[in-house]
C-alpha cells in the first residue's frame, strides 16, 4: 500500500466511523423515546414522518434554534469547554474498535479498524477516564450549587467504578494474553466468546459501563429529583445537546466495546460454513457486530426504564464493597484455573 492509498483508506475509515457514530447516536435518542413509550404502554413520538422517524431531525433543529444562554456569573471559557471536552472524548474511543475483519481489494488487505494499537485496551481506558473532565468542568463553571454537586457526584462515581472496571479487564487480559482489540476479537471465532470464560468479569464490566456512561440506575449526576438537572442545569441550546449527545455516543461505544470484549465482536457462529469469500464474510461481520451493538443499546434503555435510581451511599457501597472485591476474586480464580489447566507459560 502506497502512502496516498494509506491516507485515502484511513481518511475514509475515520469519516465512516465518525458518521456512523453520529448517526447511531442520533437515532438512539429516537429509540430511547420509542422504547420508553413501549415499556410504559404509550405510542411515543409519531408526528414527524412515518412512525416519527424524522423526530431526531426535528429535535436537532429545535436544539439549534433555541436561544443560547451563558450565565453572567459563569466562567465563560470553561463553560464552553465543558460540552466540547465531553463530545471530544466520546468521539475519540471509536478509533481502536475493530468494526469487522479485513476487506481484500486487488490483493491488498484493508482492516476495518482505524488503527490497531498494541495497547488498545489501555488507550480505551485512558480516554474513558478523561471523559469525566467535560462533566466536571461544565458543572463547576456554571457557578451553580446544583451543577457543582452534579459534577462532583460524576467525578467520584467515575473514579470509583473505573477501579472495578480496570480490575475486571485485567482478568480478561490474563485469559486473552493481549491488549490489542483486534487480537481479542479474532480469538473469539465461532463460539469461543470470552463471556464463556469470564462470566463474572463480563457482569462487572457491564455494570461499570452503566456507571461510566452515567446511565440509569447510575444517573445520579443528573438526578432531577434532587439536583434539578445536575451538571447541565445552566446549559441550553446545542451545548445541552452536546452533553446529551455525548451520553448517547458513550452508550454506543460501550455497547461496541462490550460486544468486542466479551461477545465475539464481529465473529458470527456457523456462517463460515456457507460463506467463503472473505469480503462477504467481512460485510456480514459488520452486520453481525451491529446486531450485537443494537441489542446492548436496547439493553441500556431497557434497564433505564425498568430499574429505579440508586441512592448515593448504595452506589458507593456497590462500587467499593461489592464490585472491587468481586473483581479481585475473579482475578484470583482466573489465575488458579489458568495455573491448574496448564494455560500459564
Amino acid at each position: 500500500m502506497g502512502l496516498t492509498d494509506l491516507l485515502v483508506y484511513k481518511g475514509i475509515m475515520v469519516l465512516a466511523v465518525f458518521a456512523i457514530t453520529l448517526l447511531v447516536a442520533t437515532y438512539s435518542t429516537y429509540a430511547e423515546r420509542k422504547i420508553a413509550a413501549f415499556l410504559q404502554d404509550r405510542i411515543g413520538p409519531d408526528r414527524a414522518g412515518p412512525f416519527g422517524i424524522l423526530q431526531p431531525l426535528a429535535d436537532a433543529v429545535k436544539m439549534f434554534m433555541k436561544e443560547e444562554m451563558i450565565p453572567s456569573v459563569s466562567n465563560k471559557t470553561l463553560f464552553i469547554l465543558g460540552p466540547s471536552v465531553a463530545m471530544l472524548t466520546a468521539c475519540l474511543t471509536g478509533v481502536v474498535i475493530p468494526w469487522g475483519s479485513s476487506l481484500w481489494i486487488n490483493g491488498t488487505e484493508y482492516p476495518l479498524q482505524i488503527t490497531d494499537l498494541n495497547i488498545g485496551i489501555l488507550y480505551l481506558f485512558g480516554v474513558i477516564s478523561l471523559g469525566v473532565y467535560g462533566i466536571m468542568i461544565g458543572g463547576w463553571s456554571s457557578n451553580n450549587k446544583y451543577s457543582l454537586l452534579g459534577g462532583i457526584r460524576a467525578s467520584s462515581q467515575m473514579i470509583s467504578y473505573e477501579v472495578a472496571m480496570g480490575l475486571s479487564i485485567i482478568a480478561l487480559v490474563m485469559t486473552t494474553g493481549t491488549l490489542s482489540l483486534r487480537d481479542i476479537a479474532a480469538q473469539q471465532y465461532g463460539w469461543h466468546w470470552n463471556v464463556v470464560y469470564q462470566p463474572l468479569g463480563c457482569l462487572i464490566f457491564i455494570i461499570c459501563a452503566f456507571a461510566e456512561t452515567n446511565r440509569a440506575p447510575f444517573d445520579l449526576p443528573e438526578c432531577e429529583t434532587e439536583l434539578v438537572g445536575g451538571y447541565h442545569t445552566e446549559y441550553s441550546s446545542m451545548k445541552l445537546g452536546f452533553f446529551l449527545f455525548a451520553e448517547y455516543i458513550n452508550m454506543f461505544i460501550s455497547s461496541a466495546v462490550i460486544s468486542t470484549f466479551y461477545f465475539g465482536g464481529y465473529n458470527m457462529p456457523f456462517v463460515g460454513r456457507w460463506v467463503h469469500d472473505p469480503n462477504w464474510l467481512a460485510v456480514l461481520g459488520i452486520v453481525f457486530l451491529f446486531v450485537k451493538i443494537s441489542f446492548f443499546i436496547f439493553f441500556f434503555m431497557w434497564v433505564r426504564w425498568t430499574l429505579p435510581r440508586f441512592r448515593y451511599d448504595q452506589l458507593m457501597n456497590l462500587g467499593w464493597k461489592i464490585l472491587i472485591p468481586l473483581s479481585i476474586f475473579n482475578i484470583v480464580i482466573t489465575g488458579f484455573v489458568m495455573y491448574f489447566t496448564g494455560h500459564l507459560n
Binding site: F125, G126, S129, V132, E162
Partner: peptide, 23 residues
C-alpha cells in the same frame, strides 16, 4: 505503555481528584 499508563493514572485519576478537592 508508559504513555498510556501516564495518562490513565495522572490525567485520568490523580488530577480528577485534585480538581474534585479544589472544586
Amino acid at each position: 505503555f508508559l504513555a498510556a499508563v501516564h495518562i490513565i493514572v495522572y490525567a485520568g485519576a490523580i488530577m480528577v481528584l485534585f480538581l474534585f478537592v479544589i472544586m
